[in-house]
């Protein structure tokens, strides 16, 4: 794979979440997987072994990835050996996302998110 150098003048970012990547320059293989279980309880009492990933189908369900069967042959040649970027501003990168300035060969990103809300009944609220 022909190499190129990446020149970035300024890159502004506020937050990079779990298993996210900011890559300036070439890379070969990039794999990022993240499992997020977000629980919001009106009465915020949590116990240590309460929410396990294996208890939820979202995290065990296999996701079938399409396979490229057709023979594919790509040759790339770069007239100029530089990637020039003046100003990039990406405020937030959520779970397993990638900001990539440069060439790459294969990238595989996977994320599983489950949100749970526990709201108390009105009767329980009066007992507070």
């Amino acid at each position: 794979m022909a190499k190129r150098t990446s020149h970035v003048q300024s890159l502004t970012n506020i937050s990079v979440d779990t298993s996210s990547v900011i890559q300036i320059g070439d890379s070969k293989v990039l794999d990022a997987v993240s499992n997020v279980l977000a629980v919001q309880r009106e009465k915020a009492i949590f116990y240590e072994n309460e929410f396990l990933f294996r208890d939820y189908f979202t995290f065990c369900e296999p996701i079938d990835v399409p396979v490229i069967t057709e023979p594919l042959e790509i040759t790339t040649c770069h007239e100029t050996s530089a990637i020039c970027v003046n100003k990039v501003r990406v405020n937030f990168l959520a779970a397993s996302s990638v900001l990539h300035v440069g060439s790459n060969e294969s990238i595989c990103l996977g994320s599983r998110v489950k949100n749970i809300r526990h709201i108390m009944k009105d009767a329980d609220k009066n007992q507070k």
């Binding site: 990446s6 996302s97 990638v98 060969e105």
Partner: peptide
């Protein structure tokens, strides 16, 4: 280039790549 948010399992490329596999499961 100004992007507000890159959500889960998404990628922003300046440059080229060969194979991209993005999977996301949101509940």
């Amino acid at each position: 280039l100004k992007v507000e948010t890159l959500v889960t399992a998404s990628s922003l490329f300046i440059g080229d790549t060969k194979t991209v596999t993005l999977t996301s499961n949101y509940e």
